[in-house]
């Protein structure tokens, strides 16, 4: 009962966030007008007046960016929750354990490599898919390495996991630094964009090409919920409950890195979404992945949409990189959540 209530609330929150974010900017568009313009574009005419300028701004500029935020937020949060299930550790975040940097290293290498191929110069879609394949490979490699390193027998060690992530982050960043020092101007601009994270490149083309890479993991991950719950008992223990552990691990890594990789390819490194969102939800509706995974996707979508609205309006007409906003919002909240958890454990123990 409480769980379906949480989900309903999160759906309403997402709708409100989308309407709010679509309205915010240099040209303010009230929620009723937003609804009316969207309905009109799919053939439903509502008795609400708006001018054509509003419609143009909303359809061409705001909505693609809002959709991109929704998709990436949902993808990152769901990936975060499932990686935490895989590592059996609530601190496993794509950014912290090096999965995002693995993806961005491969993105940077790809950018430099394809700038030398004239055939790809005008072909945005081919470029984008190539970039996607590269970030997916990078994210996969990084997560497999960290998982292997942090596993000690039947457990994953928090410190080893974080240190392995630290190592991979340092390695990737130094190689990226090496590449940037030899890159030309245009490559450099692209590379900086990847390192700070931004939804500024949003277009309908990008939204459509990102869609499958986010939708597939979001639809498939919740089907692994029961297995992920059992996996938290330990690998052998999950096996004794009838779970094909090897297949589960591979599936989780592929699906989670698919969405992290695609997010990095579209918007660069955006940290902390995958860490904060599941944390908040565990506090509200518990650790059961059957509700945690879909709810994470919903809350992640709202959170990133709102964070992006903040990043593009707070110092308008300039923009803050969204990676900085999520880190600024995320770190204090994360520390507060940790303190709360520590206190909860203490009060039970005494």
């Amino acid at each position: 009962m409480r769980r379906s209530l949480t989900t309903t609330t999160l759906i309403l929150l997402l709708i409100a966030s989308v309407l709010f974010a679509s309205g915010m900017g240099a040209m303010h568009i009230p929620p009723m007008q937003v609804v009316s313009i969207i309905c009109n574009s799919i053939g439903i005419h509502l008795p609400v007046d708006y001018n054509e300028g509003m419609a143009g701004v909303l359809i061409q500029i705001r909505l693609p960016r809002v959709c991109l935020g929704v998709l990436i937020g949902a993808g990152l949060a769901a990936a975060g929750a499932s990686l935490q299930g895989l590592f059996r550790n609530p601190l496993a975040d794509a950014r912290l354990i090096g999965v995002s940097s693995g993806a961005s290293l491969f993105a940077v290498v790809t950018i430099v490599a394809i700038s030398g191929i004239p055939a790809l110069a005008g072909n945005h879609l081919a470029k984008y898919y190539l970039l996607n394949a590269a970030t997916f490979t990078g994210a996969c490699l990084a997560s497999v390495v960290v998982f292997r390193i942090s596993k000690a027998g039947n457990k994953t060690m928090t410190t080893t996991m974080l240190l392995a992530g630290l190592g991979i982050n340092a390695l990737c960043e130094s190689i990226i630094g090496l590449i940037t020092s030899t890159a030309n101007n245009e490559e450099l601009r692209n590379i900086t964009f990847w390192l700070l994270g931004s939804l500024g490149g949003a277009s309908w083309g990008m939204v459509l090409s990102l869609l499958p890479f986010i939708l597939v993991p979001i639809c498939l991950l919740p089907q692994l919920s029961k297995s992920l719950n059992a996996f938290s008992l330990g690998e052998a223990e999950a096996m004794h409950l009838g779970i094909n552990v090897k297949r589960l691990k591979t599936t989780i890594i592929v699906l989670a890195t698919l969405s992290v990789g695609a997010s990095v390819a579209a918007a660069g490194i955006i940290g902390f979404v995958g860490l904060i969102v599941p944390h908040i939800l565990r506090g509200i509706s518990g650790s059961d992945h059957r509700s945690l995974l879909p709810n994470s996707a919903l809350l992640g979508a709202s959170l990133l949409t709102l964070a992006d609205t903040f990043s593009r309006t707070i110092i308008a007409p300039a923009e803050l990189p969204i990676g900085i906003v999520t880190a600024l919002l995320g770190t204090p909240l994360f520390i507060a959540l940790l303190l709360k958890q520590k206190k909860a454990i203490k009060s039970w123990a005494s």
């Binding site: 609530p90 039947n154 457990k155 938290s232 052998a236 223990e237 004794h240 650790s287 059961d288």
Partner: peptide
Amino acid sequence: VLTQQYAITLPFTCEE
């Protein structure tokens, strides 16, 4: 099978 591995790091309730 009841193994000697009891620790669970994600906050599940006992009933879960």
